[in-house]
Amino acid sequence: MNILVCISHVPDTTAKINFTADGSALDPAGVQFVINPYDEFGLTKALHIKEAQGATITVLNVGGPETEPTLRKALAIGADQAVRINATPTDAITVAKSIKNHIQANAYDLIICGQESIDYNGQQVPAMLAALLDVPMVNACVGLTIDGSTATAKAEIDGGHATYTANLPMVIGGKKGLVEEKDLRIPNMRGIMTARTKPLSVEEGLSGSNTAAKAFRKPAAKSAVKMVAPDQVNELVRLLHEESKSI
């Protein structure tokens, strides 16, 4: 089985976000980049499938050379090979088209994405990719079993869960639940050493974009908190009703 895990390269969850002075882009100064947390669950799921039934795992990122350490980290965690599609990921549809071209030239049985990237919070690439490939997709996927060429996927829907079956190849938008937090792996020394010699190939991607980011800004700062004494909860109820009009 051939599994593709799509990985986005995003600011660490603890990063304080700043934008360039003209507001045109993220200011990367002092920001550490990591594997998108949703994709870590997907990568670990791929490793579980490999260990249970055998598979080749390819990790892929659409981005510039600066994302290669992130791909190497995925190799150190256990992926077999990596592909960087050289393109600036300007918008999801162009990213999805580039990934689609790669998939059409290389047969994959299962394409695992994360539900969303924590940078631009698009939640777009997996569904777009499935539509471009004309294959099934399950988003917010919190459980997956593969039996031959059939997948059973459990997904979060509003207020509950649904279970779907589909034929491979398919696209997953995964999240925690696909595997558990405790299953996530950190690269060990041996993994880091072998990752250096695993193949990381570079292919050219598409440019262009259907959307244009015009400006970024930070949300307005909150005004100071109003403290209420613990024995005056009635005062909190009054404020919520009269001042903030929340109740």
Binding site: N121, T211, F216, P219
Partner: peptide
């Protein structure tokens, strides 16, 4: 964007 740490103005 950036998990509510930023607001993006975007043109479609």
């Amino acid at each position: 964007a950036f998990s509510s740490k930023g607001i993006e103005t975007i043109a479609l």
